[in-house]
Computed example of a mutant assay.
Amino acid sequence: MSMKIEIWSDIACPWCFIGKRRFEKALEKFEHKDQIDVQWRSYQLDPSLPAHYDGTETEYLSQMKGMPQDQVRQMFAHVTEQAEGEGLAYDFDKIVVANSFTAHRFLHLAKAHDLDAQAKEALLSGHFEHGEDIGDVEYLVRTGVVLGLDEAEIREALEGDRYTEDVQADIAEARALGVTGVPFFVLDRKYGISGAQPTESFSQALAQAWAERNPLTMLSGNNDDGATCGPDGCN
């Protein structure tokens, strides 16, 4: 039986892409990786953001956090450096600031076709590396078609309100679990990991969660023939 790992994240979250890479490195090395069921869940850092923000990412965060723009740029430099360490090429000057709700609905459509992991990767890369507008239906349609989704189905879903309740349900569940920031990883509904932790931390968490759901059962015979050795010698 597979072990479920749920990951709450936002496409507009730079640490979510970094965390995705670090988690994937840990999962790739995990001996039971073929029995892990990864599920991507929706979360919005700023639901109040308009469909499109008339300004740069620097201006947006400066305004939202009440920070000087120079301080925001320093923060971007640090995040960019961390991203580079994971093979990602962030370009904050290109980022188009947009509400991510429609993009999350698109991800749920992709999930219905077992393409959510590929869609998540494409949108994160598009947003942080290529300056794509994740709030633009035309961009989402192009991305979906490349992934193999039907153009008519994408348009019908995004131009209506399809998957709105699914996105809202994900966000509500995150709130019920006490999630206040992303990325947030839930392993087997037992362990929560907040943030883009080092790969080693994800590896340790995977091993611990797996061991607890698959404990070793000791079998003993009916006689004393099973000799063993220990710190004090053998018997």
Rank of each mutant, 00 (worst) to 15 (best):
I154H: 06
K20R: 12
V96L: 09
Q71Y: 10
H113D: 03
V146A: 07
V186S: 05
A51I: 10
E212Q: 14
G87D: 05
K20F: 09
V79N: 13
S9P: 11
A207C: 04
C13F: 11
A51V: 11
A83E: 03
R21H: 07
D166S: 12
G181Y: 08
D116N: 12
V167T: 05
R175I: 06
S100L: 05
K20N: 10
P50T: 05
D170K: 02
G55K: 03
L27S: 10
E121F: 07
A152W: 08
A26S: 13
E165C: 02
S9H: 15
Q63N: 14
R22A: 14
F76H: 15
T164C: 00
K33W: 01
A83D: 02
A169K: 04
H52F: 06
D116W: 08
R175T: 09
Y163P: 04
F92S: 00
E84N: 14
G19H: 13
A83L: 02
K25S: 12
L158C: 05
A157E: 01
A205F: 10
L216P: 07
K20A: 07
S62Y: 08
A12V: 14
H78N: 06
Q197D: 11
A119Q: 00
G181S: 12
Q69A: 14
L49Q: 03
L177C: 02
P198E: 01
